[in-house]
Design a protein around this nucleic acid. Sequence first.
DNA 1: AGTTCGTTACTC
DNA 2: CCGTGAGTAACGAACT
Length: 583
Amino acid sequence: MRASAVTSRSTDAARFLVVGLTGRNLVALVSLDGRGRETGRRSVARDVLADVLGGAGSGETTAPRIVWGDTARWYRDILARGRRVERCHDLRLCHAILAAAAHRPGGVPFAPAAAWSVASHVPLEGAPDALFEIDDAPGSVPQGIDDALAEFARQLDALSMPGAGGLRRLVAAESAGALIGAEMTAAGLPWDAVAHDGILRTVLGPRPPAGGVPSMQAALGARVRELLGDPAVSLDSQPKLLRALHRAGVPVQSTGRWELREHRHPAIEPLIEYKKLARLASANGWAWLDEWVHDGRFRPAYVPGGVVTGRWASSGGGALQIPRSLRPAVRADEGWLLVCADVAQLEPRVLAAMAGDRAMADAARGADLYAGIVERGAVTTRDEAKVAMLGAMYGATSGESGRLVPRLRRVFPHAMALVDAAAATGERGGVVTTWWGRTSPPPSHEWRALQSHAHSADADPAEEAIARRAARDRGRFTRNFVVQGTAAEWALVWLADLRARLRLLTAAPGTPSASASGPAFAHVPHLVFWLHDEVIVHTPEALAEPVAGAVREAAASAGRLLFGDFPIDFPLDLRVSRTAGKG
DNA sequence: AGTTCGTTACTC
DNA sequence: CCGTGAGTAACGAACT
């Protein structure tokens, strides 16, 4: 707040601070009270926005909630300048939630605006200025202050409806997630390139010249070709490999590992091993390391709300599919530690709480829900319990899983009734919602047309069968949506609550700096990874214990916030260590 | 030469 | 009587 403040009225009582452009380099900050009425307005130059938003008072709970079009676009530059924002309202993400919720019968009154129904696209690299060069380009969110004010007013209207309490919590959690996603990209996942290289050398052999095949992969490949009696065949071409297998007397229909395993041929075991090495080299080999790890950090782009169920997606480096064998390459800086935690069996626990199923909650008491299911006599082994539970939530109808589901239905009738009802709604073409009101997408026009034709007089049996299958597919989707989506809500709250707790922890003077984490995080514990039901915090050694406590407290707090005093546990598997690998 | 599709494999 | 959900990404093949 320097000479750049053009006009100024009081913003002290502001509940919200709406941010939007009024010119290429001028940002308007409009203060609103709790009912959305304007109480002040000023303009600042873009290059001081970080200091204004992340300046004095931002760490207090009375600080206004920042309202902006797209967190991913506004926040990166602020973080790069070493500033953070306490809480926000992301208009783009909240638009998506409200637009979907408007589809449900008796849902919120909200007419989606096309301009806001877009994905975020932020250039991964490049000058900060590039962020705003594409203002109002097709496919990006409006950045102007008037657009933001108008959209926020519409959202406040919808959210003020009686019964929208869940949605109000959901949009707050979603917005917190947007901040966290941007912060994790800025801080980066501490990645030890030397450890990664060591793993690759152990498995693949020394690094080959660019484009070359690693020696151990090449040797395996030669052996497979010899055993197949086809010294020139390409193992990397699916059709060619399939033909070679047929010639060698292996009657498979695919080259997938699961089908190969069912046949006996000397070439099969080394072939499966070859495919494993080829996969590692191609997906997470030296080329990946060169492209994605810089200065000891892996910085994927997270896409909060990128999956319809509310789970996050990611882009760049395949952040959500890092093979477990590379976990040991995730390594804290000198003088720092990693606190890694994951929730055991999150989804079935969430289902028990949603359904108010006391029997299932009893089975979930303790660390292993599957053991609890066995104790209650639904099935006889832990493996059966697991397969049956997954089948119940995913909609298995066949195989061992499908066979076991009915036994679960007898012991946990309330939980099963909830997922069965969700499936039935989906098959009928309806929409379903999560605990806080995230709403599934409606069926496509093609799906509706298929169903209505199949129910007309001139449908032939083949068409009816196709339509039935499509209906079942959709039923499985909605069945899973309510559980996966509510689990995502729980996890989002866990994460947001944890972030708030971490902000209360400060390192003692003299703590080594995690300088590669950037100016906003070099001296404080910070989130560096999150994947559905697990979290990793990078922390100065001296704060590891308080951080571990915060992780546990946040999980308990999330359970209470969603499900009140319903007696459901969310036990954590928590490790404090230098690396994220086992042990 | 560039784009799309199918297959495969990794994560939860 | 089939058919357990959600993703990202690499590769080759087939298309334009």
